[in-house]
């Protein structure tokens, strides 16, 4: 078998356990697999970032969010699978910008595991959409590619308008004026728990914008599952 990323041949059966349980063999060679850094250890309760042993249970970033009356509570939590190391940056560039869609297969198992552990079947899956222009340019939506990996169906309840590169506005201004999301066709959302799917959690503004729209339409709570915590 050849590695999905480096194309070099490798032996995909890593352990007896794998053989006995008839697990799907890994699509990556051990070297490529090992270069991803999985987030493991003590996490910020809010954003799922890795914390120092002695640190408080919420990171400085999230404390700042919590001070915000309006936006602080828009998101119940974010959980991410990987750290944003140099390797991950390269892989994401190849996947998302070069458009090598099939790389998403490398994330299947850990992404599904994270979904089961932190969310589960009673959460409705909604991928963060791209604007029609961006979608045409890329040919696919990377968040939707991730959502397709999950064991439950996903729902395209959100749409996004095209916005130019983020301007020099303050965070406050961006939050108040630049929400690019709006509702698409959707059933009543009352009481629903919704997990947003996206590739990268950086500032948390994007998922909070999306969450806000869903909460205003009646959703009970909104969380996020992202591939990478930047």
């Amino acid at each position: 078998m050849n590695c999905l990323l480096c194309h070099s041949p490798y032996n995909p059966i890593a352990s007896w356990r794998q053989l006995l349980l008839l697990e799907e063999p890994d699509v990556l060679c051990p070297r490529c697999r090992g270069t991803f850094a999985v987030i493991r250890g003590r996490l910020c309760e809010m954003c799922g970032r890795l914390l120092e042993e002695a640190a408080p249970s919420v990171c400085a970033d999230c404390l700042r969010w919590q001070e915000d009356e309006q936006w602080g509570r828009a998101l119940v939590k974010n959980r991410s699978v990987y750290l944003y190391n140099d390797w991950m940056k390269d892989v994401v560039a190849l996947w998302k910008f070069r458009g090598d869609y099939v790389i998403v297969e490398a994330f299947r198992r850990p992404f599904v595991q994270a979904f089961r552990r932190h969310f589960g079947r009673d959460w409705c899956i909604v991928p963060i959409p791209l604007s029609p222009e961006r979608l045409h340019e890329r040919g696919f939506n990377q968040a939707e590619a991730l959502a397709r990996l999950l064991p439950s169906p996903y729902f395209p309840w959100l749409s996004r308008k095209h916005s130019e590169k983020q301007s020099k506005k303050s965070r406050r201004e961006r939050l108040e004026t630049d929400n690019p999301f709006f509702l698409a066709d959707h059933p009543p959302l009352d009481g629903k728990r919704i997990v947003l799917i996206d590739d990268i959690y950086t500032t948390g503004i994007t998922v909070r914008h999306a969450a806000r729209i869903l909460l205003e339409a009646g959703a009970a709570e909104v969380g996020a599952l992202t591939l990478v915590r930047a």
Binding site: G99, D100, Y101, V102, L135, H136, G139, F140, N141, A145
Partner: peptide, 14 residues
């Protein structure tokens, strides 16, 4: 490989 292509609306090989 192939992907659900937003341009042609079908499963598109690349």
């Amino acid at each position: 490989a192939s992907f659900p292509c937003a341009r042609c609306g079908s499963d598109c090989a690349y």
